[in-house]
């Protein structure tokens, strides 16, 4: 993602908060305290109903506005609502998809993905309006017209098979990262291994930054056939471990106890051990 994530705040450097103080701070006259509180509540998964309500209200904030018309508090509120796992936030997040601020739209898409909200599918599809030809850089801004990567990934994760024909053209988008997101979604929606193999190819061809992105994609879709390619790719072990963890988790049943571990899962763990 283009904007540095709020996750990069160091917890130690921030004000020491409690859930009560953070909730109160969302109404503070000091805008920076509101901004920090909105992030903090998500980071620490403070999921009580009044937090969800307060963050939903913050999605309409008008007080905190940047010179370029961005809404910092809305961005953080949208990000946190995805982490809190309460689907009550879905309608308000869908409304954010029409916000004038690109980063609010991006955060809302990502949170709707995390909430696996099928009711968001039509609004997400709408962000693909105009297809690849409209998916161009906004003049003077470091991003495209819409948060396409996030939209494609969300449609794949939510299982929006009705969007397949709209997603497929993005495999040819000029930006490699957008291509990756399209391949990832196409694999999730069709289980066709050619899309997984496409990602493996990009893992081998891309530069380091792209390799990290592709590792994330392969982990997210749990593409087992990529295990060796992941272990051997030229990237930091931490990124490879996260990708292999994704593969491993796809191999494990939802609730596994001591029934033993399948051979495929063992193969992935052996690769992980070798990367320690």
């Amino acid at each position: 993602m283009i904007e540095p994530s709020a996750e990069e705040y160091s917890v130690e450097n921030g004000t020491q908060l409690t859930p009560e103080i953070a909730i109160a701070n969302l109404q503070s006259p000091d805008l920076s305290l509101r901004y920090y509180a909105a992030w903090w509540l998500g980071k620490f998964r403070i999921s009580q109903p009044e937090v969800v309500d307060a963050l939903i209200a913050a999605l309409e904030d008008e007080a905190d506005k940047t010179e370029l018309g961005g809404y910092p508090l809305r961005r953080n509120a949208a990000r946190s609502l995805g982490k809190l796992g309460n689907t009550k936030a879905v309608p308000a997040l869908i409304k954010c998809l029409e916000c004038s601020d690109f980063y609010v739209r991006e955060a809302a898409v990502q949170s709707l993905e995390m909430l696996r909200a099928p009711t968001a599918i039509p609004a997400l599809i709408k962000l693909l309006d105009g297809g690849v030809s409209q998916a161009v850089q906004v003049p003077g801004r470091p991003h495209l017209a819409q948060p396409y990567e996030a939209v494609l990934e969300a449609l794949g994760a939510i299982g929006a098979t009705e969007a397949i024909s709209l997603i497929q053209p993005f495999l040819k988008h000029p930006v490699p990262r957008v291509q990756c997101s399209a391949a990832r979604a196409m694999y999730q929606l069709t289980q066709d291994t050619s899309y997984g193999d496409l990602l493996v190819k990009m893992l081998e061809a891309g530069d380091l930054k792209l390799r990290r992105v592709v590792l994330g994609d392969l982990g997210a879709i749990g593409y087992l056939a990529a295990a060796n390619a992941i272990a051997q790719s030229k990237a930091e072990n931490s990124f490879k471990l996260i990708a292999l963890k994704g593969l491993l988790e796809h191999q494990l049943p939802d609730k596994f106890d001591d029934v033993g571990v399948a051979d495929e899962a063992i193969r992935v763990m052996k690769l992980m051990d070798s990367l320690l």
Binding site: K245, L248, F256, D258, V261
Partner: peptide, 19 residues
């Protein structure tokens, strides 16, 4: 760890260690 770890991947590795 098998009873309490919140990461499936870690619990799977614990099981492998057992075996």
């Amino acid at each position: 760890m098998l009873a309490n770890d919140n990461e499936k991947a870690v619990r799977a590795r614990v099981q492998l260690a057992y075996t």
